[in-house]
Amino acid sequence: MLNVASVNKSFDGFMAVNDTDLTVEKGQVVAVIGPNGAGKTTLFKLITGHLHPDQGQILFKGEDISALPPYEVCRKGISLSFQVVNIFSRLTVFENVQAAVLSHLKKTYKLFSPARNQAVRETWEILDNVGLTKKADGVSGALSHGDQKVLEIAIALGNAPELLILDEPTAGMSPEETAVAINLIHRLTAELGLTILFCEHDMELVFSIAHSIMVMQQGKSLIEGDPETVKNNPLVQEAYLGEST
């Protein structure tokens, strides 16, 4: 479904992403792992249109999306949940998710019908799914960090994505919050059958749900394959897994 081919991106001469390849098939859960600064977030932002590659191609369902702005990429069916919490902090939790649903339903130019009657069912469905129903009326800026990260994912779900990209969904969470988030991601893959591309430092999570793993180092894709292959690859063991165990 997603095909990233020999993509390059540099900032002031620094190669953040260097000749990287990545493939995501429909229905798969793909993890990107690598040390901090390996270029994972940059790679995701290249896919979602926040950045544009210097070279290379990004194909989504056979169409080159590498030059599109973020909102066009989103409309093609790719949603991003940010690593650093990036929500609408003055709006309520409900309104945060509703904004995404409204955008998905192409209702953003409706001027005179009350918003509280629009996209309500879809929004509640998502809130129920992620477990934020009870906090729906609270102002999102006042939530705990863990809840804000869950809201991040909920907003991304609001666009009913075909491909969901999660940039470190458990970053900065307490152990309890992490457990809740892992549970949520498990359910998203199992019950909704979403195609997910994510990066994560929690190796347990990575190896428990990923169908395929891509290892990045210094902006390059080292290897891409199923968890067993990646685990047993000597290069990977030396470069990455070695230091984390």
């Binding site: 979602t48 409309r75 998905h104």
Partner: peptide, 12 residues
């Protein structure tokens, strides 16, 4: 108003 970057990301 709250977050133009995120708004772009949800397709606005």
């Amino acid at each position: 108003r709250d977050n133009p970057e995120r708004s772009e990301t949800i397709g606005v």
